[in-house]
Amino acid sequence: MSRVPSPPPPAEMSSGPVAESWCYTQIKVVKFSYMWTINNFSFCREEMGEVIKSSTFSSGANDKLKWCLRVNPKGLDEESKDYLSLYLLLVSCPKSEVRAKFKFSILNAKGEETKAMESQRAYRFVQGKDWGFKKFIRRDFLLDEANGLLPDDKLTLFCEVSVVQDSVNISGQNTMNMVKVPECRLADELGGLWENSRFTDCCLCVAGQEFQAHKAILAARSPVFSAMFEHEMEESKKNRVEINDVEPEVFKEMMCFIYTGKAPNLDKMADDLLAAADKYALERLKVMCEDALCSNLSVENAAEILILADLHSADQLKTQAVDFINYHASDVLETSGWKSMVVSHPHLVAEAYRSLASAQCPFLGPPRKRLKQS
Rank of each mutant, 00 (worst) to 15 (best):
D144N: 08
V30G: 09
G365I: 14
V30R: 10
L317F: 02
R185Y: 01
I325H: 01
S55N: 10
T156L: 12
A100C: 15
M255G: 11
V224I: 15
V164W: 05
G337I: 09
L142Y: 03
F158N: 07
D130G: 01
E189I: 09
P182Q: 04
K135P: 15
L193W: 05
S42A: 06
G111Y: 10
A277V: 08
G132F: 00
K134P: 04
K74T: 15
V29Y: 15
W67Q: 00
L266S: 12
P264Q: 10
F41I: 04
D77P: 15
G75A: 14
F324P: 00
G75H: 08
L107Q: 11
S92T: 13
K64L: 07
C93W: 12
M35C: 08
D331R: 03
P17T: 07
E112H: 10
K286M: 06
Q320E: 11
E160T: 12
A19D: 03
C93H: 14
D82E: 10
T175Y: 04
A219K: 15
F32H: 12
K28T: 10
T37I: 05
K286G: 03
H328W: 13
C202K: 14
H328K: 12
L89I: 12
F158G: 13
F41G: 04
S55A: 00
R124N: 15
A100G: 01
K74W: 11
S336Q: 02
M176C: 03
G192N: 07
A187H: 04
D166I: 09
A146Q: 01
N147F: 14
V349F: 14
F125G: 03
D188S: 07
A122Y: 13
V51F: 04
V349I: 11
V287H: 03
S222I: 13
R185H: 09
E304A: 03
Q26M: 01
M1C: 00
P223M: 08
T175S: 01
E113M: 04
S162Y: 05
V332T: 08
K369A: 02
S358D: 02
A122C: 05
P366Y: 13
W194P: 07
K369N: 03
T56P: 07
V126Y: 15
W36P: 00
L371P: 13
C202V: 13
V51P: 13
P94T: 08
R139L: 10
Q360N: 15
M228N: 15
S313I: 04
S344K: 10
L364D: 14
S167T: 10
S336N: 13
L90C: 08
S344H: 12
K286T: 08
P151K: 01
W131G: 00
G75F: 08
S33M: 14
F41Q: 11
V30M: 04
H345K: 06
L76D: 13
K66V: 05
D245Q: 05
I27Q: 13
K369R: 01
T335L: 01
E210K: 12
M255I: 03
N177V: 06
Q360Y: 15
H328D: 04
L306R: 01
K262M: 02
T319R: 09
C23L: 03
P223H: 14
C23I: 05
K81N: 08
M1Y: 00
K154A: 15
T319E: 12
A216P: 06
L107S: 10
F104T: 15
M48K: 02
C205E: 15
L348P: 00
D245E: 10
M48A: 07
P9S: 04
Y353M: 14
P94H: 14
P9Q: 14
P223G: 15
P7H: 07
T156H: 02
A292M: 04
D140C: 01
A100R: 00
L274V: 02
P346A: 03
I52K: 03
S54K: 00
S167I: 03
L76K: 07
S330C: 01
G208K: 15
R124Y: 15
V91W: 13
C159F: 06
E20R: 09
P9R: 13
K66C: 12
A11P: 06
K180A: 05
M1G: 00
G16I: 10
E232D: 09
K101V: 09
R124S: 12
S313Q: 13
K103W: 06
H214A: 08
D153Q: 12
C361T: 12
R185Q: 06
S92P: 01
P264W: 06
A321F: 00
L218D: 00
R99E: 12
D140Q: 12
L84Y: 09
V29L: 12
